[in-house]
């Protein structure tokens, strides 16, 4: 929660400064933004590659566990594709790209902003923050209705960090390992899936 507040803080101060109209003329943040994005992607890759945990968890050969992120991907993309039918101003692709953030709002919103548009970037930011907050609040109820994987599914990419405590509490410690595995797989896939969907 603390990190979401920091992130909202940076975003909000940008909005306020933008609204104030006190920006120097001719500052091209789109161009600057795409260089910043390359830097971000490189650093994100570095952090995945240099983390021993991401490889040791991926090396787990229990075939059942791989179905968890696969199910979450299929469920998320199906849900976000279907719901685009009641959202007239969004295409199916746009809605799926927002869904494919799996709660990883910081990276997915920045990504969608650069690849598509500012307004869809804001949609992705808000939508994926909602996913994290909803998971924190609703995991106890979801687990009692849909079983022990429900919190992991709802949390998506956040199941490896911010929503892990609540998942571990209501689904049990043995599910915490599955949560971390699923969260890591989804986190790694976010940039690939978003790019693929929007291309």
């Amino acid at each position: 929660m603390r990190s979401s507040l920091i992130i909202i803080g940076f975003f909000a101060s940008g909005v306020v400064l933008g609204l104030s109209g006190k920006l120097p003329n001719g500052f091209d943040f789109d161009k600057f933004g795409s260089y910043a994005l390359y830097l971000l992607m490189f650093l994100a890759g570095l952090s995945i590659g240099s983390d021993k945990n991401s490889w040791s968890v991926l090396a787990t050969h229990n075939y059942k566990i791989i179905w968890v992120p696969v199910t979450i991907i299929i469920g998320t993309l199906t849900g976000s594709a279907l719901v685009s039918l009641i959202l007239p101003s969004l295409t199916m692709k746009e809605s799926m790209a927002v869904g494919a953030g799996f709660g990883y709002y910081s990276l997915s919103s920045v990504f969608i902003t650069q690849l598509h548009s500012h307004s869809l970037g804001v949609t992705a930011l808000l939508s994926n923050i909602f996913r994290e907050v909803f998971t924190l609040l609703a995991t106890p109820i979801l687990v009692s209705y849909f079983g022990n994987l429900a919190g992991i599914a709802s949390g998506g990419a956040t199941a490896m960090d911010t929503t892990l405590p609540v998942i571990s509490k209501y689904s049990g410690k043995s599910y915490a390992i599955i949560a971390v595995f699923s969260g890591i797989v989804l986190t790694i896939l976010v940039p690939f899936l978003v790019t693929f969907i929007l291309s």
Binding site: I74, G75, T78, V83, S89, S95, G99, S127, F130, R131
Partner: peptide
Amino acid sequence: EALVIALASIFGSVILSG
């Protein structure tokens, strides 16, 4: 729109995970 997409994504994956 963000809220609707979030809920649809969550319920799609939660139901399948069930």
